[in-house]
Nucleic acid binder design. Structure first.
Lengths: 373, 373
DNA sequence: CTAGGTCTCTTTATCGATTCAGAACCAGGC
DNA sequence: GCCTGGTTCTGAATCGATAAAGAGACCTAG
């Protein structure tokens, strides 16, 4: 054995320090050194002291985590999978708020968070396959190929927002009903010229132009199966129909859930003639984009234009945005708990959280001039 | 822990499927099955096909990441260590913006992010020791015990903001000079009644009351050695002294970098008699807290009160906050690149990024009444 | 004086893959 | 016929630790 070690020294001039190195040097077994680090009560303090000194001397970085994880069968980390770019998720207050809640419960139990995004097809699949984790939290607004990749790992999973998979715990809200309330709020104020900006996931946009329409062609009966984005559109549809509006006459644009990008969709909508008196944004981030463009053009909110959002992110309150509140960080803590304290319930828990319309200062009855025109 | 249990239950129920299981079933060697997954060009398509079919049949979740990492010696993940609670980091736009930049470069190279916070003494140390990563990014505004823990892993490290460790790449800005500019801006407008709210890290607050003062007692010559928080205070000091103000007469309160908590410090300061005509906040988040309290009390900004922040987080622009801009996401991308494309430079690179004072609408000359009083 | 218990430490058997040197086979060139 | 070189596949040697069972030493009580 020592011969082998010598050989290794010659081959690579930097010999790695392992438990064995220390064991040899101190003159004890490898297991004892392992115990010195992981179960201090299993050996005499005096010996432990000596082992630690030698470890220090040899500049030992501590037990190798990969080896430890392999042997123990536990990583102490959960993977958080986003179906969008990570840098993009960090720009989205909703995603960040969710992470905040998740981090809270994870931290309390000493569990780490391994974040995984979807930068381009193929990359994430490999990262997911290689992630040293004990389970996954799948944060996915809509159907996405990564769902399958995650499930294939055969680890505990919690899905958030979408999809509901039988046997897999789920956290979400009733997007369709909530969206309907948002639209109803505008309709009851008397708005009849309404435009909608939907939140379309990036993945659905890849192929090119013209797909927006395909994405919007919803089988309304089964809209919930296609994720939060389309469920919300279906909810807006429900409300408009109920108010007697013709769905086909309502301008509806899909956009990415990004303030910057949403501005373009907002610009197109505010260019329409006649200009809508109200805009329904499928997320607050998009609503802010609308407000940006309105401010830029001197369109008064809510006098000339009403705006309603969705999510109630932290910035919504200071901005006075009327929106649908959903318990963002609570979704995170709930997802975390479902993952960390799994129940043996059958069927798997499916948590639908509360939502509530919050009326603030971006909604008002339509302007007279418009109503008369 | 409970996660472990669930994992175990599954394991004991069904015998685990490994490469060997598949190899036996197909009648080839384990190595060949490994190649089927990791190096498809090393075997005939036909055989690979058969192997994959059997793998599918046996419900094989793919090569075990821990084992793979152990053997390969590479994890494809970098650890991001915060010296505050993670849930707290997600509430801080500066930290989130940094993460956004870091995520951008990490994703491009298929590298995962393992986030680690500091929920309470002891927990993070263990998580850091157990993290299966190839390197660490240490996001630390001030001196902190975790720095030592991270360095002990003997992995590549990049520190952000603090501390500068010889031999370890560093990314930061000239906090002291930048802070001085922020203060000078107010002084040049004619303000003489200035109050300061400093950003004190949570870790420095643990012991109890009375420590604020100790934290503030700075050896000015060496303030940079104590991190961004105190370097900024030193910068404010420089400017005040230059303007002929007496440092000991300037009210200065430390607070956590959290809008909510900062409001309390702001309330105390706005209670002073005479009330300051200007407040210097060590971060934008704190500045927002000040603005909240001012709004609540009907104190007009900037007519009755000037406020200047630091960081230029995304919300600063819509809020019209005068602040010092630092390239937040660029700090993240730079840190990521230093970690992922290590240079053999000696000494290690020490990147000081640009900063710039951005004057917006929260600063104006002091009100007449105050000036006359 | 001996059975049983407690402390310490050692031995042996994995955890699940990848690496690397080589074996077997086949085709082509001289 | 023999050598060269390429393609496929195999066997043995790791990667660095932990779990479980066991071996001595020493102590205690019956």
């Amino acid at each position: 054995m020592s011969l082998l070690n010598q050989f290794r020294i010659r081959v690579s001039d930097v010999e790695r320090v392992t438990l064995q190195t220390i064991a040899d040097r101190v003159g004890v077994s490898r297991t004892t050194v392992s115990n010195a680090f992981s179960r201090p009560d299993q050996l005499k303090q005096e010996l432990r002291q000596r082992i630690m000194e030698v470890a220090e001397e040899l500049d030992y970085p501590g037990p190798n985590p990969a080896a430890r994880t392999l042997r123990r069968g536990r990583a102490g980390v959960i993977g958080v999978v986003f179906t969008e770019t990570l840098s993009y998720a960090f720009a989205d207050s909703y995603a960040v708020g969710f992470l905040r809640g998740l981090a809270r419960v994870a931290e309390q139990s000493g569990t780490g968070l391994h974040l995984i995004g979807w930068p381009s097809p193929g990359v994430a699949e490999e990262v997911i396959g290689d992630a040293v984790v004990d389970g996954f939290c799948l944060f996915s607004p809509e159907a996405h190929p990564l769902v399958e990749t995650v499930l294939r790992r055969r680890l505990p999973v919690v899905t958030v927002d979408h999809p509901y998979v039988p046997g897999v715990p789920f956290v979400g809200i009733e997007d369709r009903a909530a969206a309907s309330e948002a639209a109803t709020c505008l309709l009851e104020l008397g708005h009849r010229h309404i435009a909608i900006i939907a939140a379309q996931p990036m993945a659905a946009q890849v192929p090119g132009r013209g797909h927006e329409q395909a994405w919007l062609d919803i089988d309304l009966a089964a809209a919930h199966r296609f994720g939060a984005g389309r469920a919300r559109v279906a909810g807006y549809h429900d409300a408009c129909l109920k108010a007697g509006l013709s769905w086909s006459e309502i301008p509806i644009h899909p956009t990415t859930n990004d303030r910057e990008i949403a501005r373009r969709a907002a610009a197109r909508i505010l260019d329409l003639d006649p200009r809508p008196t109200a805009v329904i944004a499928a997320t607050d981030e998009i609503a802010f984009g609308v407000m940006d463009v309105a401010a830029q053009r001197g369109i008064g909110i809510p006098d000339e234009l009403s705006v309603v959002g969705f999510d109630d992110v932290p910035a919504a309150e200071p901005a006075g945005l009327t929106t649908v509140r959903q318990p963002i960080t609570e979704k995170g803590t709930t997802a975390g708990r479902l993952l960390l304290e799994p129940s043996r319930d059958d069927p798997a828990p499916c948590v639908l959280m509360e939502h509530r319309l919050i009326v603030r200062r971006t909604t008002a009855p339509p302007p007279r001039t418009k109503r008369n025109s």
